[in-house]
Computed example of a mutant assay.
Amino acid sequence: MSDTTRTFAAIVIIYNPNSTGNAPKLAEQLRDELRGLLPYRPDIELQPTGHAGHAVMLARDAAANLHDVLIVSVSGDGGYNEVVNGVMQSGNPNAVCAVMAAGNANDHRRTTGTMPLAEAIALGRTRHIDLMRIHTGQGPDAPGEYAHSYVGFGLTPVMAIDLEKGSKGALKEMFSVVRTFSKFQPFEIRQSDGKHRKFDSIVFANIAEMAKYATLSEADDKLSDGKFEVVIFPHMPKWRVLLKALRATTQGLGEQPSVSSYEFTTLKPLPYQVDGEVKSVDAGTFVKVESAPAALPTLG
């Protein structure tokens, strides 16, 4: 979808006051910078979150009730995930989202950002990006939520979060991989052809990199092609899994297959991660991940 230029009647900046990345100060700095930079005078509001999931409510209410609104998340990937889901729940296709990196990790901003956020807001040049949607269960009441960057099962997403918590530097990240690797076992699922297969990791990715050093794929234009990449580690001897994981932190994994939908059924309770946030599904749960093409207007 082509770019459009927007001005905003309201800008809502959502942040976690207890963020490890100094989100309150960053939010205030962004507000002050916008007041001096924008040639028009939008209503700029700071909204701190009070508990887990609060950003979903704040973003949903802002998108549903404010005209020409930009909603900025000053957060890591998990906080931005809440804001994106709130905007999508609002049913307002014109609400624009943006993210300023704060907190533990923001792979989305790091891999997709094109310019300083305040400058991007002043230019007002929006673009539409794909999201992914994961459904757990079947039927009209089956839970579903959006991901802006990745959905992961097994070793790789947990390894990536552990990397982000570790010390900086590629060599130390490799030691983090080794430490985390020893804790995980393969999981078995029933795929859409009815066959049972074991995996060490499956990651569905809208972005090419996770946790600074883990390069998942080399696909171009990943955010607007109506597909996502599927990065699979089938079950294999541990030394081979380790070598592949280390390759992700150094050389990258190379080109990966891309699809618009992927589905399977769990055989045992299974944890997974959506943009870094840990979830879980019960045994016997139908899981479907699908692309939501051009679903989110954004800038920056």
Rank of each mutant, 00 (worst) to 15 (best):
R6L: 10
I13T: 08
N18F: 02
S19H: 06
T20L: 04
G21V: 07
L30W: 03
E33C: 15
L37S: 04
I44C: 12
Q47A: 13
L58C: 06
A59T: 07
A62Q: 11
A63G: 08
A64R: 12
D68M: 07
D77M: 11
G78C: 09
Q89I: 09
S90L: 09
S90P: 01
P93M: 05
A95E: 08
C97T: 07
C97R: 02
C97K: 02
M100S: 11
A105E: 01
D107N: 07
E119R: 07
A120R: 03
A122Y: 06
H128L: 08
M132I: 12
I134H: 04
I134C: 04
H135I: 14
G137I: 15
D141Q: 09
P143N: 12
H148L: 01
V151G: 03
V158L: 11
E164Y: 01
E173A: 12
E173L: 00
F175S: 13
T180D: 05
S182L: 07
I189W: 01
S192I: 00
S192E: 12
G194K: 13
K195P: 02
V203E: 00
Y213P: 03
F228N: 05
E229C: 08
V230H: 01
I232L: 13
K238T: 14
A248P: 08
G252F: 14
G254T: 10
Q256T: 06
Q256C: 10
F264H: 00
Q273C: 07
V278K: 10
K279T: 02
G284F: 15
